[in-house]
């Protein structure tokens, strides 16, 4: 079943200098099925964050549309968009984006609080989740008191607490050491096995290897994709060869 559909997206940034235009995305289309784990790879500046932001409804496309569960973002009113985002999407960012002034527990509960959920629902959802992520002992700590890996797991908990249809992660391992990265990827794989749909931007081949589909993006276009045919297939070799093909293509041009 398709949960997210991206149709011929185009994004043009107008810079202030002499009305210059930057085409960050040009004609991107793809769809995400329920239970997929998709990785997006590409060089820096190729438009990955732009794509993710549009899928997250944080930014609007210049042309084209995004449909989540068959509903187009363009049809949702501006003031409903944030509650829609809260209930249907979860985010994990490279720099965690935790609030310094909230303890770990309140950071995780934030989306539920914003939706004015009852205390009962909050408690019911919080404890199983933090136990699963192994951060149940950090509840009263503040972000500056815990490690990077723990921060990122907090962010993952925050993204999961609303049971969203889709998790969007922008270079979630970018600021983590290799051990914490591995842990996080393991966590993502496990969540995906339990049926969570995840979409992740990454630079790391190892991270992309965990996904069951990898999209390669260059100059705002999807230029190719690699998929696993069976869940346990190792696709890192394939990814490597695509990446080297892309970089040699650039050198020759």
């Amino acid at each position: 079943m398709t949960i997210l559909e991206v149709k011929s997206l185009k994004k043009i940034y107008k810079t202030r200098f002499r009305g210059n235009q930057v085409e960050a995305l040009s004609n991107i289309s793809f769809s995400v099925d329920q239970g997929e784990f998709i990785a997006i790879m590409g060089e820096s500046g190729s438009g990955k964050t732009t794509l993710l932001n549009i899928m997250a409804s944080l930014d609007s496309p210049s042309e084209g549309s995004v449909l989540l569960n068959g509903k187009s973002y363009a049809d949702i009113r501006e003031d409903e968009l944030s509650s829609f985002r809260r209930d249907n999407l979860g985010f994990v960012f490279q720099d965690f984006n935790l609030l310094d002034n909230l303890n770990i527990k309140d950071n995780i509960l934030l989306p539920l609080v914003l939706s004015n959920c009852s205390r009962k629902v909050m408690k019911e959802r919080l404890f199983p989740l933090v136990r699963k992520l192994g951060i149940e002992n950090l509840m009263r700590k503040f972000p500056y008191e815990v490690s990077g890996g723990q921060k990122q797991r907090t962010a993952v908990a925050r993204s999961l607490i609303t049971s969203p249809s889709l998790i969007l992660a922008d270079e979630p391992t970018g600021a983590l050491d290799s051990h914490s990265s591995e842990e996080l990827l393991k966590l993502f794989s496990e969540l995906n096995r339990e049926g969570q749909t995840i979409m992740m931007v990454t630079h790391s081949v190892q991270a992309a290897g965990c996904a069951n589909r990898v999209l390669f993006i260059k100059d705002g276009k999807i230029i190719c994709e690699v998929s696993k045919h069976s869940p346990n297939e190792d696709i890192t070799q394939k990814i490597f060869s695509v990446l080297s093909a892309i970089s040699t293509a650039r050198e020759t041009s």
Binding site: E78, D79, S82, N97
Partner: peptide
């Protein structure tokens, strides 16, 4: 951050 997490402009 609050905006990204889903707090509306209003």
């Amino acid at each position: 951050i609050l905006k990204k997490i889903g707090m509306s402009q209003k």
